[in-house]
């Protein structure tokens, strides 16, 4: 076990808290009709984004999915520009050309999120190939869900990442459902990480609601990747606290299963752990929440008062 510095633990906690508050706020704004488009929220999976990204440098690059807000916040996309993108304004991180499913900011190492299931896995692998060519110590991380593991892109990419020993970490967030389809009817194996063995790379299963476990597994994987030893597949078992998308009441989920997972709130788990270890006091946590709420209020104000893109801007930025 690697000893995690206190400041990292605090960073992870604060990041998770930020994601939780951000998503709760977005959900409300969305239901109130203040936000166009659709949303896929990340509550319940915060420990994955925070635990992974706590190991990354700004220059490392991630790819994300249709559920990208948590990854964006953890990788350092500015909260104002993220909010403005969700409000479809020209000040958004993609200038209004992305929206919820495509948020990202290459300046902080996040490619616009790729909302085709599995579509980011080859891209992350190619990014890692570039890093290898460039003899750089940077790594690529691909976040994807359990559903992506049944796409051909998963197989092709992990295989090529493996044969070329690329500096890439494949992070599967197994929230047990691909939209409404249970992982139990989608695969016959117990752990998706088992698939790593068919590519000759390490496959690790971690409790995705335990930020510290996610951090530990990622730390090892990043060290391997930076050391030229190739990729790792990390399966983080986790759970959505809400529906797949905006209008999903989750009628397909077993109520007992839901209850069990919802009591295992990753934010609470880390808070209790840090409090017990004397790294965090309840007052610290309250103070953080207060600061985050203020930051969110400012971000919403910024977004709502930002200009809409000009219609003709739709024609720009197709070609370099």
């Amino acid at each position: 076990m690697i000893k995690i510095p206190g400041e990292k633990l605090i960073w992870m906690y604060k990041t998770m808290l930020k994601i939780r508050h951000f998503e709760d706020k977005i959900h409300r704004l969305f239901l109130e009709g203040n936000m166009p488009g659709t949303i896929h929220l990340y509550q319940g999976q915060e420990a994955v984004a925070a635990g992974v990204c706590a190991n990354l440098e700004r220059s490392d690059v991630i790819t994300s999915t249709h559920r990208p807000h948590g990854h964006a916040l953890a990788k350092g996309v500015a909260i104002k520009s993220l909010m403005a993108e969700l409000f479809a304004r020209s000040t958004g991180c993609c200038g209004g050309k992305g929206g919820s499913m495509h948020v990202g900011d290459p300046d902080v190492g996040m490619i616009p999120a790729i909302a085709i299931v599995g579509g980011g896995i080859p891209v992350a692998t190619g990014i890692a190939l570039a890093f290898k060519f460039q003899k750089s110590k940077r790594v690529a991380v691909s976040f994807f869900g359990d559903g992506a593991c049944n796409e051909g892109s998963f197989h092709e990419s992990l295989n090529m990442g493996a044969i070329w020993n690329l500096p890439v970490i494949y992070v599967c967030e197994n929230n047990l459902y691909g939209a409404s389809t249970s992982i139990r009817v989608a695969v016959k194996i117990r752990d998706l990480a088992e698939r790593a063995s068919s590519y000759g790379i390490p496959g690790v299963v971690v409790d995705g609601n335990e930020a510290i476990s996610v951090y530990q597994a990622t730390s090892k994987a990043v060290e391997r990747a930076r050391g030229g030893q190739g990729p790792t597949l990390i399966e983080c078992k986790t759970y959505r606290r809400g529906g797949h998308s905006r209008s999903d009441a989750c009628n397909y989920r077993d109520k007992e299963e839901e209850k069990m997972w919802l009591t295992r709130d990753p934010v609470v788990i880390l808070r209790e752990r840090l409090t017990k270890d004397g790294i965090l006091t309840p007052e610290d946590s309250k103070q953080m929440e207060k600061e985050i709420e203020e930051e969110l209020t400012q971000a919403i104000h910024f977004a709502e008062n930002s200009p809409w893109p000009k219609p003709e801007e739709a024609l720009e930025q197709v070609w370099a």
């Binding site: 896995i121 080859p122 891209v123 570039a130 460039q134 690529a140 090529m160």
Partner: peptide, 27 residues
Amino acid sequence: ERILDTPISELGTTGIAVGAALMGMRP
């Protein structure tokens, strides 16, 4: 390394070319 043979994986190879290009390579 620069004449890089791939397995028979057209989707993966194309995505890898995209990713490498994003980072300044010219595949």
